[in-house]
Design a protein around this nucleic acid. Structure first.
Length: 779
DNA sequence: CGTTTTTGCCTTTTT
DNA sequence: GGCAAAAACG
């Protein structure tokens, strides 16, 4: 441990004294230079609750970072006393980076700058035992979570088709986001899944997590809240520590995050929330715009500061975006302005179909490139990830370099998850989910039957699969082939754990992948993607080098699902979703697919009505305000969806763009009348029903769901976990030597020797076998 | 037990 | 139309 006073590890929890080692106050600190009056007010209002309403492009991050510099510079606080939370890892990195630029190394002590989840995880590790976990608990990702729920659903005797694990995952997530533990669930919440068995499954899920020593994402915050509410002493300790709290993107916080913040902020009440209600686009994930709308009543006496001067976009772009967002109700209201020139109007273009749209946009991109624009200055922002496909195809065809942001993420790739599972089992043998993932990868001849056997034993004895495997390979329960395969794997893990002490962890990781046969598996694979996967594994080992040990790396991976990639050198067009673009800016922004049903998404409107529509509109607002100089909106009359042609009318958002800021390229030929190509209009297309008669995909889906009718009743069944856990003759010591017993596979026999829970038995037909006690009953 | 064929579902958005 | 999981086959 260092002597660094900024290192929180060296920080005791005693009351901080007034101004620890404060540098002499400077009359006009350098970092305040160049701030506008509102920004400056937001920076200098250090004490008491502050809400900063920061419109798009108004210097929000600058205010946050400068405020931190100010807190440190005036000696009001140590770095370790500042809690600054962001929503995404990207934002956290960005802040860290910019503070370092501003004040240099002092920023290193800001160890409580991070995402809600990463900070909550750190706090939880210190008090894990209070919620029935060990400090080294695993953080489950979506995939693990789903597999677990699947097991629970079938254990409850429910049909997976009718009760999809995904739906349950979503439900539990929403409950957790609202701060609801199973015991706090309202009766009416309970009816939304499997005939009101949601709560039962939720409870079972939490129990499973506890036995697995695991927490999912929602738990990180929820457990924090539980601890804070139950242990006032612990809460007080954290409250004392965090003298200043800063929150980025406050409009995106959910109820759990809000509760967490409010608990922590209660002592000093120095909480500064920055956000923009017009950019709230995560309602589907539990974000409560209400949090920001209610701020003043939650924190009486709060200062509200509006940042309205935009430094990013031209007048026309700002005017178009402002005009659009006016259609929403229940806003706090801001009027963005700029001293910039009006610039070009937002251009709206109609196309015949999606292919023509992709062609048109790629032509426009090449045109601009011809006029000296860099590709990196241009971005295409789409509503849904799948929409990037059409552009990718076109760009590949014409050889235009592009990058897709947010596609399948590095740590979600199969080979990476497999490798990580090996590491997890090495570090934490009891991680059943990881164990299950790799027992038979590469193929070792350990199929369903073997795994089932392990499960039965593990549940019967209340131990992990890994330990069950350790036991069972000592016996003759298994056929020789799977048995020796399993034993090899187990000795492998033992060896890796043993050498882990001396070997650098990167080498250990490499050894694990090599010796387990995992690397060889992909080397032997002749498919096209195998080389890429091997590259990814190499990259994984490289990434590992940046961490102290495997454990630290695994923690990082669980919370930061992305990897820092050193691209950036090549000039490329950026392709991403509107959600992914929040917080970014580009000189030129293309906004394709503005069609009713696609954007605004039919599904959002079906599921959330007006609120859904307004969120879509905010998304459109976010999209437009990403542009500095040029925004180009487009829509297509026909689009292929699920392999079927659908025709669509232009998005209502296009109509809502004020005419004096938008230029609509008139192409009346596309709707009604004859089109330029061929003699028929979209109206004659057999699938024109979209929109005109309400048969959009979402509507059809909704209709089908309704038509599906109630589930056939299978009689009342209750989830009885005990039934699974208590198997016959659980206790091993119940047998005596010489006793006659029965075994499912080997038949009758007599016990010749007892070794703990392992029995040597002379079977009448099968000969002498070593067998686990729980597989035997008294005859 | 592992491979091939068939089905069914899907396109929001992410820590 | 494409992809992943289930089913069917060897």
């Amino acid at each position: 441990m260092s002597n660094d006073p900024f290192d929180p590890a060296n920080w005791d929890d005693t009351e901080p004294s007034a101004a620890p080692g404060a540098p002499a106050p400077i009359l006009e600190p350098f970092y305040l230079e160049g701030l506008n009056p509102q920004q400056r007010a937001a920076v200098e209002a250090t004490d008491g609750p502050v809400l900063v309403l920061a419109g798009a492009g108004t210097g929000k991050t600058r205010v946050l970072t400068t405020r931190i510099a100010h807190l440190l510079g005036t000696g009001k606080s140590w770095p370790g006393q500042i809690l600054s939370v962001t929503f995404t890892n990207k934002a956290a990195r960005e802040m860290q980076h910019r503070i370092a630029q501003l004040i240099g190394g002092v920023a290193d002590g800001l160890s409580w700058l991070g995402t809600f989840h990463s900070i909550a995880a750190r706090i939880l590790r210190r008090h894990a035992e209070l919620v029935g976990l060990k400090p080294n608990f695993t953080i489950l990702d979506a995939d693990d979570q789903l597999r677990l729920l699947k097991q629970l659903i079938s254990a409850a005797g429910l049909d997976e088709k009718r009760n999809p694990p995904r739906a349950l995952a979503g439900l539990i997530d929403r409950w957790k986001n609202r701060g609801l533990t199973p015991d706090r669930l309202n009766p009416e919440d309970n009816h939304s899944f499997a005939d009101g068995r949601g709560r039962e499954l939720y409870t079972a899920y939490q129990e499973r997590l506890a036995t697995l020593n695991a927490a999912d994402f929602g738990d990180l915050l929820l457990h924090n809240i539980t601890i804070f509410q139950r242990e006032p002493e612990i809460l007080a300790q954290w409250q004392r520590r965090f003298k200043y709290i800063l929150v980025d993107e406050y409009q995106d916080t959910n109820v759990a995050q809000y509760l967490w913040l409010r608990l922590l902020a209660q002592r000093w009440r120095n909480v500064c929330c920055v956000g923009d209600d017009d950019q709230s686009i995560y309602g589907w994930r539990g974000a409560e715009v209400g949090n920001i709308l209610r701020f003043e009543s939650d924190f009486p006496g709060a200062k509200v500061i509006r940042l309205e001067r935009n430094y990013r976009s031209t007048g026309h772009i700002l005017g178009a975006a402002s005009g659009l967002i006016k259609a929403n109700e229940g806003r706090l209201g801001k009027t963005l302005w700029t001293e910039d020139a009006l610039g070009e109007k937002v251009q709206v273009t109609g196309y015949w179909d999606g292919e023509e749209e992709a062609r048109g946009i790629s032509d426009a991109i090449e045109g601009m490139r011809g006029h000296g624009r860099k590709l990196a200055e241009m971005a295409i922002l789409v509503r849904a990830g799948a929409q990037t496909r059409a552009f990718e195809e076109r760009f590949v065809a014409v050889g235009l370099p592009y990058r897709v942001i947010g596609g399948p993420r590095f740590y979600e790739r199969q080979e990476i998850r497999d490798a990580l599972a090996y590491f997890r089992v090495t570090v934490q043998p009891d991680d059943d989910l990881a164990f299950e993932r790799i027992v038979n990868v590469p193929k070792r001849g350990l199929g369903d039957a073997t795994i089932q056997q392990l499960h039965v034993l593990a549940r019967g004895r209340g131990i992990s699969l890994h330990r069950a495997a350790g036991l069972i390979v000592e016996t003759d329960e298994m056929k020789p082939r799977p048995r020796s395969a399993l034993r090899d794997l187990m000795t492998g893990f033992e060896r890796w754990r043993a050498i882990g002490g001396d070997l650098p962890h990167t080498e250990l990781a490499q050894t694990i992948l090599d010796e387990s046969g995992y690397t060889a598996m992909w080397q032997a694979d002749k498919s096209a993607e195998a080389p890429g996967r091997l590259d990814n594994l190499k990259e994984l080992i490289d990434a590992l080098a940046g961490f102290e040990n495997l454990t630290a790396f695994l923690e990082h991976v669980a919370l930061v699902m992305e990897i820092e990639r050193g691209d950036g050198t090549q000039d490329m067009v950026t392709l991403m979703t509107l959600h992914g673009a929040k917080g970014l800016e580009f000189p030129v922004v293309f906004l394709p697919g503005w069609e009713e049903g696609l954007f605004p998404s039919q599904r959002s409107m079906d599921e959330n009505g007006l609120a859904g529509l307004e969120e879509e509109r905010r998304l459109a607002y976010v999209g437009l305000t990403r542009a500095r100089e040029k925004a180009i909106v487009s829509h297509a009359a026909n689009r292929r969806l699920y392999g079927q042609w659908q025709s669509a009318i232009p998005s209502r958002f296009i109509d809502e763009l004020p005419g004096d800021h938008a230029q609509v390229e008139a192409r009346p030929g596309l709707w009604g009348g004859l089109s330029e190509r061929g003699g028929f209009t979209p109206a004659m297309n057999d699938s024109d029903l979209f929109g005109s008669r309400g048969l959009s995909p979402g509507f059809q889906r909704a209709a089908q769901n309704r038509a599906a009718g109630p589930a056939p009743r299978v009689g009342p069944r209750t989830l009885d976990l005990n039934a699974d856990y208590v198997t016959s003759s659980d206790a091993g010591g119940d047998f005596k030597a010489g006793e006659r017993v029965f075994h499912q596979k080997f038949g009758y026999g007599r016990i010749s020797h007892i070794d703990g829970n392992k029995l040597d038995i002379n079977f009448e037909k099968a000969g002498t076998k070593k067998v686990i006690a729980s597989f035997v009953t008294k005859a």
